[in-house]
Every structure is written in structure tokens, then in C-alpha cells.
């Protein structure tokens, strides 16, 4: 199965976001590199607003991800509640 990934800058804002992604995607692998965290997952990865809000302790707009996003791979679908990356195979 093809891998999708999302890479975020490593900083205070993204720490709870990365935790939330790990919670929602138990199959994901988190690679911590200098200044950057790259999260790989087989086939599909979901980023959920609610989980981020729980980790962050405040309301969160998923579009805020734009500020700390480095790169991603896979087809993107985003609405208020989720950002999904997936490959069709």
C-alpha cells in the first residue's frame, strides 16, 4: 500500500497537533527530524479538529494548519472537522 504523509514544522504550536494525529492514526509512524516532523501512514491519514482541540485546550480552525505545514502527499480533502490524505489504488 502506498504511503501518505504530512510534515509539520517542529514548534510549540504543532506539538499538540502531532499528538492528536498520533491518537487518531495508530498506524502512523512519526519521524522527528531537525526542525521538522514527518508523519507517514499506509494509504490514509486523518487529521481531526476535535482531537486537536482536546490536546490544545482551545478552539481550533483546521485551516490554521497552513501556517506550520511543510509538505504532504496524497489526495487532500478538507472540511471543518477533518483533513484527510489518501491514495486511490
Amino acid at each position: 500500500m502506498s504511503t501518505v504523509f504530512i510534515a509539520l514544522q517542529a514548534n510549540e504550536e504543532t506539538r499538540p497537533i502531532i499528538d492528536a494525529i498520533e491518537i487518531d492514526n495508530p498506524q502512523a509512524v512519526v519521524n522527528r527530524q531537525p526542525a521538522m516532523v514527518k508523519i507517514d501512514a499506509p494509504g490514509r491519514l486523518v487529521v481531526r479538529r476535535e482531537t486537536i482541540e482536546e490536546q490544545l485546550g482551545r478552539a481550533y480552525d483546521l485551516q490554521e494548519l497552513q501556517i506550520n505545514l511543510i509538505t504532504l502527499s496524497g489526495n487532500v480533502d478538507e472540511d471543518e472537522d477533518t483533513l484527510t490524505l489518501s491514495w486511490n489504488e
Binding site: Q9, Q33, P34, A35, M36, Q66, N68, L69, I70, T71
Partner: peptide
């Protein structure tokens, strides 16, 4: 940008990630 981070070049890490955040779009 990782290379810049490894080699102590904070200026480039910064413009790099700032630009790269647009690249996903």
C-alpha cells in the same frame, strides 16, 4: 531546509519553511 537546520543557517530554515508552507497548497 533540513540541510540549513543541520548547518546552523537559521535565515534559510526560516524562509524555507515559510515558503514550504505554501508549497503544500
Amino acid at each position: 531546509m533540513s540541510g540549513a537546520a543541520y548547518n546552523g543557517d537559521m535565515a534559510t530554515v526560516t524562509f524555507g519553511f515559510s515558503a514550504q508552507s505554501d508549497e503544500a497548497r
